[in-house]
């Protein structure tokens, strides 16, 4: 069993990754409350099986894998009902009204929500979280080429839906600098 020092380190590291777990969970199940339940369940499972985590390996990848497996098994048990009737399910955002620039994000979210689930997942892991294709493939239990293909299809479809052309023409950007709130 790990020493108290180890476990307080782990506690800190887990706490730091909670925002990422929440964001990933939200993109999987689309409902903020369900996503938070999923994150809590993931933290408990991770804590209980912490001795199986190989020190020095990628903690975030390990946690994301636990979260993803938990989501899939819960959904099999129909605990997470998926209602995507109006296409707003995936990655619901706190898009505040009347703020300039937010229309873009709303459009993006709508377009994102139309992608097949496995493409959304691949794009989040690689494009948003910055996982290597190889890590994303391990996490999703598929071939590296499959992940590459999913990411590419997702990008092509988003570009089509959002009117991004070769020249980089895009929905108006207000000259804002995109926020990049996480380390790549």
């Amino acid at each position: 069993m790990s020493s108290p020092t180890d476990s307080s380190d782990l506690q800190k590291e887990l706490a730091q990754l909670v925002p990422n777990l929440r964001a990933f969970a939200r993109s999987l199940c689309g409902n903020a409350d369900q996503a938070d339940d999923l994150v809590q369940e993931t933290l408990v499972k991770a804590w209980r099986s912490r001795t199986s985590f190989a020190p020095g390996s990628n903690l975030k990848a390990w946690l994301f894998t636990i979260l993803r497996n938990t989501f899939l098994s819960e959904r099999r048990k129909r605990k997470f009902e998926v209602h995507d009737s109006d296409g707003k399910l995936a990655m619901q955002l706190s898009v505040k009204g009347n703020q300039s620039g937010h229309m873009d994000l709303l459009d993006f979210s709508k377009a994102f929500a139309t992608l097949p689930e496995e493409q959304r997942e691949a794009l989040i892991l690689v494009g948003a979280e910055g996982f290597a294709y190889e890590d994303a493939a391990l996490m999703c239990g598929c071939a590296v080429g499959t992940i590459k293909s999913r990411v590419n299809r997702a990008r092509v479809k988003l570009a089509e839906l959002l009117g991004v052309t070769d020249a980089g023409e895009l929905i108006s950007d207000n000259g804002e600098t995109p926020t990049r709130l996480h380390a790549p």
């Binding site: 925002p19 990422n20 929440r22 964001a23 939200r26 993109s27 990655m91 955002l93 706190s94 873009d104 994000l105 993006f108 979210s109 994102f112 794009l123 989040i124 494009g127 948003a128 979280e129 590419n152 990008r155 092509v156 988003l158 570009a159 959002l162 991004v164 052309t165 070769d166 020249a167 980089g168 895009l170 995109p178 926020t179 990049r180 709130l181 996480h182």
Partner: peptide
Amino acid sequence: VLPVEAQGRIGQHLRRVYGEILAE
């Protein structure tokens, strides 16, 4: 295959949207 610049644009938007959730 999307041109690199278009890929970059898509990536920027994705990270901005994702970043909003991370920042909650």
